[in-house]
């Protein structure tokens, strides 16, 4: 049975990770995305500070036309992988709605 369009149109996790790496590279003004790995620590490895997190929230929400739920714990987002997990979960929830 074919998947419903809303589900089949969801980007793959790898695709979301690639996009998040691009967004972070732009945010951090990096020439290459190489330093940004799925498990890199945003604060310690990439020097994303609290203001950087503000910008990251905005970039992700705009890129995927999403709104993070108000009870999202930003302090639990420590790596690009965590951002990807959050985006994928929200996209799935949005598609299922």
């Amino acid at each position: 049975m074919p998947q419903p369009d809303s589900v089949s149109a969801l980007p793959a996790r790898a695709e979301v990770l690639a996009k998040v790496r691009t967004l972070l590279a732009e945010l951090l003004d990096l020439e290459t995305e190489d330093p940004i790995q799925e498990t890199s620590l945003l604060a310690e490895d990439l020097q994303v500070d609290s203001l950087g997190m503000v910008d990251m929230v905005t970039l992700v929400e705009e890129a995927y036309s999403l709104r993070l739920p108000s009870n999202t714990d930003l302090t639990a987002i420590k790596t690009p992988g965590h951002i990807v997990d959050l985006v994928v979960a929200l996209l799935e929830k949005k598609a299922a709605a």
């Binding site: 609290s50 997190m53 503000v54 929230v57 905005t58 929400e61 705009e62 709104r67 993070l68 108000s70 009870n71 999202t72 714990d73 930003l74 302090t75």
Partner: peptide, 20 residues
Amino acid sequence: DEKDWSRMVLYLTQYFGRFR
């Protein structure tokens, strides 16, 4: 606690983000 900080930053980011 960290959730208080998170809640404030997210609320304000989403509020002011709409003026972009």
